[in-house]
Amino acid sequence: MTSVAVVGTGLLGTAITKRLLEKGFEVHVWNRNPARLADLQELGAHAIQELHGAAQGRQAVITVLRDGAVTANVIHALGPIHGSTVMPMGTMGITEIRSLAEQVQHQNGHCLEAPVLGSKPQALKGELLVMAGGEPALFDQQRPLLEHLSQEPMLVGPIGSGAATKLALNQLIASLTHAFSLSLRLVQQAGVHVETFMAILRPSALYAPTFDKKLQRMLEGHYDDPNFSTALLRKDLHLFLEEATAAGLQIQGLQGLDALLEQSSGSQLDDLDYCALHELTQESF
């Protein structure tokens, strides 16, 4: 039986663990709060009591943690990785993942970045979009594992390319949601029925499926039960801007959205679905 570790059992990490257990893997799990492992243990997962040495005997150590700094600290705590492959699936910066890959090498392990697009529903069904970065031979070695989580995992290039791809996609999440929110508010204030607007938008080249996915939430102000929070979207947009600046790109057009999202910092919107940024596009917020 193939043995893997999942480090970080939040929304996505829990769903990944459940999927791997369902597919017959031996899964060892860790969370900073051990109480959050109880449900997974009932399903057959093994709790990691001590991080040091937890990579031994594991084909892969999948990390699903908040950011690059936390990931680096937790991986450091593993100690010797004994040739296992560390696969970070959370969103990180390009510089951060390259630094982590060097760290993993010093700990006698391998690193294959594997950030994903999708959350709990896609993970449970094995339909995450995996954008891996690393050595082709290492990707081929881990492909059978990744294929339980993704219908078609893709190797997009060397270490850092996966992070770049994920940040580019998350920037689109922020920009598309913001653009849709502004358009929606303008047509409503002008007295245009929302369905009339959508009937024109849907068959056009301007349409994105995410518009309909978030439409009712925006209209009803219902942002509970998030798969991706406003706070995480703001974090990832910050990361994108940092990397874009380092690459010499013109970021002025995005700085306004970054400042807008900063208004939600520390507010009740932080823990809600990211489309709660719709509340920020009205003057009264």
Rank of each mutant, 00 (worst) to 15 (best):
126 G>T: 08
166 K>A: 14
109 G>M: 06
122 Q>L: 13
277 L>M: 15
123 A>V: 08
241 L>W: 05
222 H>Q: 13
189 Q>G: 07
210 T>G: 07
65 L>Y: 11
144 P>T: 04
103 Q>E: 12
285 F>A: 11
22 E>H: 12
266 G>M: 05
41 Q>V: 11
123 A>T: 10
42 E>M: 13
240 F>T: 00
66 R>D: 10
284 S>F: 05
6 V>S: 06
106 H>M: 14
194 V>H: 06
12 L>H: 05
273 D>A: 14
229 S>H: 12
81 I>T: 01
220 E>G: 01
250 Q>P: 00
247 A>E: 00
197 F>W: 13
229 S>E: 11
35 A>C: 08
129 L>V: 15
90 G>C: 09
96 E>N: 08
2 T>V: 14
71 T>H: 10
55 A>L: 07
35 A>E: 13
63 T>G: 09
246 A>K: 11
242 E>G: 00
125 K>T: 02
135 E>H: 11
207 Y>T: 00
108 N>W: 04
257 L>Y: 13
11 L>N: 14
254 L>G: 14
17 T>G: 08
50 E>S: 13
143 R>F: 01
279 E>S: 13
54 A>V: 09
239 L>P: 02
104 V>A: 12
281 T>D: 13
163 A>N: 02
226 P>T: 08
219 L>A: 10
65 L>R: 11
211 F>A: 08
4 V>P: 09
182 L>S: 06
218 M>I: 03
155 L>K: 00
48 I>H: 08
57 G>H: 10
236 D>E: 09
179 A>K: 04
66 R>Y: 06
221 G>S: 00
33 N>K: 10
127 E>S: 07
236 D>M: 11
161 S>F: 05
175 S>G: 15
217 R>C: 03
155 L>W: 01
178 H>W: 14
218 M>W: 07
174 A>T: 07
88 P>I: 10
72 A>F: 06
170 N>Y: 04
